[in-house]
């Protein structure tokens, strides 16, 4: 139990802290100085606590609801993960995949859905979480991704959205539903980044301005190519535009994901490749694919 001296000290620190909390920065400094004059250790403690509080305040930790609350499942039955709310592929806001809490769906694609998700640890940040539809062999995808991840980590370019992490979440152990996911840098610009074509159209951009955007995309892709990494699925929806200080900035997303998803892209045998195509799983997006890629070639950077 605390001694009387401890209690007095605690009360003093708290009173000073709460007094300082209402003051502007300069007045806080003066208050800390007064506290130091009274007792050097007290002043130091106060200063460090105020610094922590300022940091908390800056990241919104004081006001924030700790986490988005999932909609309660209601019934007292077992595991009623119902289809309530904005459900995409059976996923809905508030659900947790690995360390990520789904917040809102961004879109759906051929492979699955993309969500804004919140990562809690080791750093707290928002990410774009691409959740793949089940049916893909998650183990194989992850094994390939692990190989890709090292290469992807070498890419540091403002025009390329970073891929942070990949994993597999098990949703329903009984039915063995496992969902592979990729966590990527969330491209923002006011809201969420827009596809390059949408951006150009809605802003009524001039030809020059459009070419400027394409040039940016080319520089980013060029950077990846110098590192020996090929995207394999370049298309407007993978070229997002966000505005930074009013200047449109292009970011290429999904780097390395197409390759991780498809064994044939990673250099599997011709037989496997043919089988995949027969099953209708074609790498990339046909409308935006290079002829040699669609023809089953290696998809080189030429």
């Amino acid at each position: 139990m605390p001694t009387e001296h401890d209690r007095t000290r605690y009360s003093r620190v708290k009173a000073l802290f709460l007094e300082a909390a209402d003051l502007p920065g300069s007045a806080q400094v003066a208050l800390v100085q007064r506290a130091r004059a009274e007792d050097a250790r007290l002043g130091d403690e106060l200063a460090s606590m105020l610094a922590i509080a300022a940091e908390d305040q800056a990241r919104g930790a004081i006001d924030a609801t700790p986490r988005p609350l999932p909609t309660p499942t209601g019934a007292a039955g077992e595991g009623t993960r119902g289809a309530a709310g904005a459900s995409v592929d059976g996923l809905r806001p508030g659900m947790m995949l690995g360390p990520y809490v789904l917040r809102e769906p961004l879109g759906e694609g051929g492979f699955g859905s993309v969500w804004i998700a919140e990562q809690a640890s080791p750093v707290r940040r928002d990410v774009a979480l691409k959740v793949l539809r089940t049916g893909l062999d998650s183990r194989a995808v992850m094994a390939r991704f692990a190989g890709e991840a090292r290469a992807l980590a070498m890419m540091e370019h403002p025009g390329i959205a970073r891929v942070f992490d990949a994993g597999v979440a098990t949703l329903d152990a009984d039915r063995g539903v496992s969902l592979p996911y990729f966590a990527m840098e969330l491209v923002r610009g006011g809201g969420v980044g827009q596809a390059i074509t949408t951006y150009a159209r809605t802003r009524g951009l001039s030809i020059e301005a459009r070419l400027g955007l394409v040039l940016q995309a080319c520089r980013a892709v060029q950077h990846a190519h110098t590192k020996g990494i090929i995207h394999r699925d370049i298309k407007p929806s993978n070229l997002l535009v966000s505005e930074q200080d009013g200047t449109p900035t292009v970011k290429v997303i999904d780097f390395g994901i197409a390759k991780a998803l498809h064994a044939e892209a990673a250099g599997a045998s011709v037989v496997e490749r043919t089988l995949s195509i027969e099953r209708g799983v074609l790498l990339g997006t046909p409308a935006y694919m290079s002829p040699e890629q669609a023809g089953g070639g290696g998809g080189g950077r030429e």
Partner: peptide
């Protein structure tokens, strides 16, 4: 049910308990 890499959120648990 969330075998891989799971995190149980205290908030979610408490609210689910409330619902039940």
């Amino acid at each position: 049910s969330e075998r891989v890499d799971h995190t149980l959120q205290a908030t979610a648990l408490v609210h689910e308990a409330y619902a039940r």
